[in-house]
């Protein structure tokens, strides 16, 4: 009898240690940050950290409709930079992103935004054809077309993804294959190499973690 009690006691202790140690995972914040004095609900002043956010934007989507940052209001989204005639990393990035798209297809809080960096050729109707052939239909995944300046600035300054024209590259452009995770407050919460399977798996796990932040 004594033995059983001792056994039960140790198991209980072990269980409580394990559960106490399990902290809720929270995603990091990327980019610049600064401290700001803000007033809380009671009107008391306090110091808060303010993180880099994605600024307002406006582009044409694959249906030639003017689309702005309002489309992502109240949603978390994954953004990337690509072009339709890219024969190297883009097919892998979008093959992988496609699996995430399919996983979250029915979740209205998740969106996808792909910016083309080929301002010469990737007009909306080209993006439309590409999306259809990839197997994407509807507004959940937006393919956006804009001027070189607006897209490249957004990529490098705001999403922290390097892009550029390069006549020596196989397809005329170079860019990083990051999938960037943005929260509902337009802050960067993750950047994953879309060509690496393990990082794409991590993104798949991080999306629910980010969604859970807004559940409370």
């Amino acid at each position: 009898m004594n033995k059983i009690t001792a056994y039960l006691a140790t198991s209980l202790l072990a269980i409580s240690i394990f559960t106490a140690c399990k902290q809720e995972r929270k995603l990091p914040f990327y980019g610049e940050r600064h401290a700001e004095t803000v007033k809380d609900a009671a009107g008391a002043e306090k110091i808060d950290t303010v993180y880099q956010t994605i600024p307002d934007w406006s582009f044409l989507n694959q249906d030639s409709v003017v689309t702005t940052n309002k489309a992502t209001d109240g949603k978390i989204y994954v953004a990337d930079f690509f072009f339709t005639s890219c024969t190297t990393i883009c097919p892998t990035m979008h093959r992988n992103l496609m699996t995430i798209y399919n996983d979250f297809k029915t979740n209205p809080d998740v969106m996808f935004v792909s910016h083309t960096i080929d301002f010469k050729y990737d007009k909306p109707h080209v993006l439309k054809k590409y999306a259809q052939k990839l197997g994407v239909d509807g507004p959940k995944w937006q393919f956006l077309y804009g001027t070189k300046d607006s897209v490249y600035t957004l990529a490098e300054k705001n999403y922290l993804v390097a892009v550029g024209e390069d006549s020596t590259a196989k397809d005329g452009y170079i860019h990083q294959g990051y999938l960037v995770l943005i929260d509902k407050d337009r802050r960067i919460r993750g950047a994953y190499d879309g060509t690496k399977e393990d990082q794409v798996e991590q993104l798949k796990k991080d999306i629910p973690v980010l969604l859970a932040e807004y559940k409370k």
Partner: peptide, 16 residues
Amino acid sequence: CQNCHGENGEGLGQLA
């Protein structure tokens, strides 16, 4: 080739 044609030769939508 794998980027377009896939790890198991399954292709990529209607793109490849």
